[in-house]
Structures are given as C-alpha cells and as structure tokens.
C-alpha cells in the first residue's frame, strides 16, 4: 500500500522534474563546461582553460560592477523592506474588514501584472530633463536648472527597483502578519506595553519569516537584473548582469559563461546564509 502510493508521487512529480532537469540543471552544466572553453571572433573552441575566470576575477570592471550591484541590492532591499513592512502592517492590523483588505491588496497587485519594461518607460516623462518633476520644480522656483540625476542615474535605477519589487516584500510579510494571534497584541496592551514595544517585541519577531522570504525575492531579483539598469541607467551604468549581457551580445559566450558562474556562486552563497534563517516550506 505504502509503496503503491509512493509510485503515484513519482509519476506525478515527473513532468516538473523533467522540465527542471532539461531547462535548468542541464543548461547550467553547459554554462559550466563552456566557461572553460576558448573562443575567437567566429567560434567557440572546446578546451580547458582558466583564462576566462582569470580575466574576470582580476579585472577592475568586474569589481566595480559587483560593488555597484551590491549597492543596488542593499538600497533596494532597505527601501522595499521599510515601505513593504509599513504597508503590510497597515493592511494587516489597521484595515478591519476582510473585504477592504482584499480590495486594497488587489489594487497593489494589479500593476505587478503589467510589463516591467512598460512600467520603467513610464518614468521617462516624469523624470526626464523636461519631465513633469523638473518642470514643476522649476516653475515653483525651487531650482533654476533641471536636475540631471533624476533619470539615467543610480537614483532612477533604485527608484525603478522599489517601484517593481516592493510587492514582493508586502505579500510575504502580510502573509506572516495575518497569522499573528491578535490576542498577543491585546495581552501586551493590557500589560501596559507602548505601541512601539508591541511593534518591536511582538510584530517584528513574529513576521521575521515573511521578511526573510521577501528579502530573498528582492535580493535575487536585483542581483540578476540587467534590463532595469539598461533602461533606467541609460546605458551608462553597469552591474554584473549587464556585463554578462554585453558579452552575450558580442557573442563572447565563454566569457559570459564564466561571469554567469561567478554570479551564480555569489547568489548561492548569499542564499545559503539567508536560508539558514528561515524554513521556506513552512511559510506557505
């Protein structure tokens, strides 16, 4: 009996497993192999050389790109966390009817379903040199010259990340907040706790898992992103993934592969630290 039920599990999990093996595991193995290959302008040459890595790990450009990427990841994480936590707190503890909660929640998630590229382009008429922000600041007399750093800058990139990814923070934090026993808060109030004490000693610790899941999402999304940097950075700014993207465009696949492997290892190391702190499967 036990065995026959297990057999069901195997064929049921098979399609998913096959897709993941064929389109995730195997391709990554291919990347790993190709990262040791040589190449010239026309073709890839099967080989075992370490030059791709050597070049990558000694180049100043890589170092700068990594620092830049970590900066984006940290800033985006910080702001999405602060904003996301506040929004989740409002939705979970201040909105009383479940219907209102659902409606407000849907309002937040709808933009998530529209194209990221379109959402990024949408900033251009607002932040550009002749954009809405600059022209209203100028006409109100606050500035004489249009601000240059609004678009095609680090500011624009981080702003776009916050715009795109805050919901990835709100959803898991809201999810864990909804599971906090309201009696705990009630009891703390009765025992004379101040609001900030309730926040610090009850709500933050108990929504920690949601915070972790959200952080994993935001962190990995920003680490692997290149399209936001391309569009919002106006082609001047570079992070790790844009370097890989540029090498792909130049058909320097082994170099791109080596870059991808190093990025993979970086992300995995960061994730290992984060996963130590939370059991994802229990959080659903």
């Amino acid at each position: 009996m036990m065995l026959s039920r297990q057999i069901h599990s195997y064929w049921q999990a098979l399609p998913l497993t096959l897709i993941l093996l064929g389109f995730l595991v195997f391709p990554i193995c291919v990347i790993l192999v190709v990262s040791f290959w040589d190449y010239n302008e026309y073709s890839l040459i099967p080989d075992f050389i370490l030059e791709n890595y050597e070049f990558l790990l000694t180049s100043k450009v890589t170092l700068k790109a990594y620092l830049q990427t970590f900066k984006y990841a940290f800033l985006s994480w910080l702001f999405t966390f602060l904003i996301g936590f506040t929004l989740a707190y409002f939705l979970a503890f201040h909105v009383r009817s479940q219907k209102t909660q659902t409606v407000l929640f849907l309002l937040c998630t709808v933009p998530f379903f529209t194209s990221n590229i379109i959402r990024m382009i949408s900033w251009i008429p607002l932040l550009g040199r002749n954009g809405l922000v600059n022209s209203s600041l100028q006409s109100s007399g606050l500035i004489d010259q249009p601000l240059d750093w609004l678009l095609y800058s680090d500011f624009a990139i981080v702003l776009a990340y916050i715009h795109l990814y805050t919901m990835f923070m709100v959803v898991p934090i809201f999810n864990s907040m909804m599971r906090i026993d309201r009696n705990l808060v009630e009891a703390a109030l009765d025992a004379g706790a101040a609001p900030w004490q309730i926040l610090k000693d009850i709500i933050v610790p108990l929504s920690k898992s949601g915070i972790m899941v959200g952080s994993i999402f935001v962190f990995t999304l920003v680490m692997g992103d290149f399209i936001t940097v391309k569009i919002m950075g106006g082609g001047i700014k570079a992070n790790v993934a844009t370097l890989i993207y540029n090498e792909i465009s130049l058909l320097q696949y082994p170099a791109a592969a080596a870059g991808a492997i190093v990025l993979l290892i970086t992300v995995l190391m960061m994730l290992m630290i984060l996963f130590r702190l939370v059991d994802v499967r229990k959080e659903l």
């Binding site: 993941l20 093996l21 995730l24 391709p27 990347i31 999402f217 990995t220 692997g224 791109a256 991808a260």
Partner: peptide, 25 residues
C-alpha cells in the same frame, strides 16, 4: 525536487537564458 524548484525561481534569469541558449546552440 523542492530545492530545484526554488532554485529555478531565484537563480538569476540571465543564467537560465544563457544556459538554454548555449545548450540549443
């Protein structure tokens, strides 16, 4: 299988793209 699925979600997309592209190539 569960961790593979998680990996599929959180590994940088450019990696998946490059990998599949190279594989087909």
């Amino acid at each position: 299988v569960f961790y593979l699925t998680l990996a599929s979600l959180i590994l940088p997309s450019i990696l998946v793209s490059l990998g599949i592209g190279l594989m087909f190539d």
